[in-house]
């Protein structure tokens, strides 16, 4: 229970406060997820390094029209940002039903992505949009796709002495994107399945497709077979149904059995595609 709280004033100081070998030293941003882990006793930190005073918050567009969001930007700020609403409406819409207002007020996008709970909504959406994060460490910065962040349940490719500093989302361009999730208990439950699609329609056919699901698997998973079926031809829902779950290892949990979750993936995939198509018109 007792731990030290470090509040560094610079990124360099923050990284120096982390420990490459000691998993009990953890960065904390909004803390909404870490506090839950601490209360449940699954995390017993010796030191928490607060990122609140690093000045890593802010939203702007970059030279290539990309969205640049500082890692310490709250989810609520992103949700309400005019830049995001106009340029990446799927992100604002997704945030509206992510946890609740209080959590979104406090939780940051960097913390959200670093937590890597497979039930979270943004990772599949950002993966489908081709977003990248910048990760800073003692040796400098590296940039990786959001899709490569999660490596398993609550596991990421971020090293213990590294921090996410920036999220970059490429411009939507001609793509239309949708995210649908399905809860199986109360409406505010963690989703049983989340489906994110980003589709570039050309008339009735699709020029480019990106489809990523969350919640049903231990990390967000790209449905490559579905993407192949979608690209360059007319939609065939029977083909789609089969492709939707063929490559997936879905595990049953408290939200539903594996078989039921596969059904939800098939249904919500179709619905997400329809929603994206409706937006493209």
């Amino acid at each position: 229970m007792p731990f030290e709280l470090a509040e560094p004033r610079s990124l360099r100081e923050a990284i120096a406060s982390l420990d490459a070998k000691d998993p009990s030293v953890r960065p904390i941003s909004g803390g909404t997820a870490l506090m839950l882990m601490m209360k449940a006793g699954v995390l017993r930190p010796s030191r928490l390094v607060s990122l609140g005073k690093l000045g890593l918050a802010g939203i702007r567009t970059g030279p290539g029209g990309e969205l640049r969001v500082g890692a310490m930007t709250s989810l609520r700020t992103i949700e309400k940002s005019e830049i995001v609403r106009k340029g990446w409406p799927v992100i604002a819409r997704t945030l509206r039903t992510l946890a609740n207002v209080r959590v979104r007020n406090v939780a940051t996008v960097g913390g959200h992505l670093a937590h890597a709970d497979p039930h979270m909504d943004l990772p599949p959406v950002l993966s489908a949009l081709g977003a990248r994060v910048t990760i800073a460490g003692a040796a400098g910065e590296r940039s990786i796709p959001v899709e490569e962040l999660g490596t398993g349940y609550l596991e990421t490719s971020i090293r213990l002495d590294e921090l996410i500093t920036l999220l970059e989302v490429p411009p939507l361009g001609g793509r239309s994107a949708a995210y649908l999730k399905c809860t199986t208990r109360s409406a505010d439950d963690w989703p049983a399945v989340g489906v994110a699609v980003s589709l570039d329609f050309q008339g009735d056919s699709i020029r480019e497709a990106s489809v990523v699901i969350g919640a049903a698997t231990d990390k967000p998973t790209r449905l490559a077979a579905v993407e192949r079926i979608l690209v360059g031809r007319k939609l065939d829902e029977n083909l789609l149904d089969e492709a939707a779950t063929q490559e997936l290892s879905v595990e049953g949990d408290l939200h539903g059995s594996a078989a039921y979750k596969k059904q939800l993936i098939r249904v919500y995939l179709r619905r997400a595609i329809h929603e994206a198509r409706a937006q493209s018109r």
Binding site: G31, T32, M35, L36, A99, R102, V103, N105, V106
Partner: peptide
Amino acid sequence: CGQGLCGCCTVVVNGRAVSGCLYLASF
């Protein structure tokens, strides 16, 4: 609930509502 889900611990910090049970006092 102790998990930020019920809102009984709501406090407003710097003009924004937070779950006081998940918010370190130091912050």
